[in-house]
Write a protein that binds this DNA or RNA. Sequence first.
DNA 1: TAGATTGTTAATCGATTAACAATC
DNA 2: TAGATTGTTAATCGATTAACAATC
Lengths: 221, 221
Amino acid sequence: MPDVVTNKNAVIRLSKYKNVLRRMHSRGVVRVYSSNLGNAVGVKASQVRKDFSFFKITGNKKGGYIVDDLLSMIHSILGKNSLQKAIIIGCGNIGSALMNYREFQRERITIVAGFDTDEGKIDPARDIPILPMSELKPFVREHRVKVGILAVPESAAQDVLDTMLAAGVEGILNFAPLRLVPSSPCVINNVNLAVEIENLFYFVNHREYDPLPTASDEDYG
Amino acid sequence: MPDVVTNKNAVIRLSKYKNVLRRMHSRGVVRVYSSNLGNAVGVKASQVRKDFSFFKITGNKKGGYIVDDLLSMIHSILGKNSLQKAIIIGCGNIGSALMNYREFQRERITIVAGFDTDEGKIDPARDIPILPMSELKPFVREHRVKVGILAVPESAAQDVLDTMLAAGVEGILNFAPLRLVPSSPCVINNVNLAVEIENLFYFVNHREYDPLPTASDEDYG
DNA sequence: TAGATTGTTAATCGATTAACAATC
DNA sequence: TAGATTGTTAATCGATTAACAATC
């Protein structure tokens, strides 16, 4: 794909620029250059400018970018001006941790309900209700939820995905450690924490000499 | 880097092959071909063979690979034959969810202790003790822990990283949403859940027509 | 103005895939 | 054997970085 087909990495970086810009904003920084953002995120300045160019964000030939303006353009691109509603399917360890996750709240990502097959966990009276799976479809319809977090055991994941898609969910954050096969077109982002830490162990156990001194030039933390 | 400098993606794929092979093993599958593994993981067969070649894993010119043999070779490469000990710093939402995370247990990744600054959370008597930060250094020394999960709020993350490195931790799984600057050489893997779901919202909100029917040929789930 | 920074095009780099000889 | 699969080298593809004209 050329780069019309929106590159996932570019969108990920856009989120990171946003995080850096928020910290700058709260420190009262007014102007920022592509080199500052590049340093803070770990890419070259030309990458930053290329990303901006892709999202039609422009600055000033001499004066860089105005932090506040940049921030509001990125907010708008990422849909940060409205509430972003999601549901969680599977209220076990991570599922319930994410129901009250501060980083989500800070991003206006709001968990509107949890779902579980375990009778004992059902509690529609809670602040964030936990409902039985039978309520999934009507709930998604009524609240127009598009995104769901899939946090059930591996053995149940594929079936639950099918149910979610049938209910109308369009995007899935999948924590189950397998490649899901969607029964209808959707967006799936996988987070595999075990693989992530396994990878860490591999590199810790295989490092010989001190590896390259892990790029550390930062302009704005 | 050519590809002597061990590519992160190859190690990640190795973990995924392992997961697929375990499922095959439990289903009694004896032989597997690179094409099966490629399909299951979402890469081409030549990628699988290239990965194996990199890790010096060989098969049979005609008969593919023996599942059990392959599995034990990968287990050995990934260090799965011994317990993998880790600590968690910050016992909030995700921190405490990961203390008893089943996917970790299944991988023989063992959380040996948690650490927190909050007096109320300290409890050295628990199954997995939760200790004050002052215990970090002696604990890491005594138990020879190399890997730590950093699950504290953004504002504390950099300081806590410095403390962890000073204590002797060599690898960090970082959940804080910023780029950390290590004060000594170490391995850092970042997991940014808010960015991950933000990305999902972006693509869900920007999809026009049905995107490419999300590769779905699977040989072995 | 001179110096510095953007926006964009060209070059580089690295990772994935294709191709194919070797061989079981 | 003939057909199929590995292991490896060559080709492709895409993403990142360098370079530079435009310009404030």
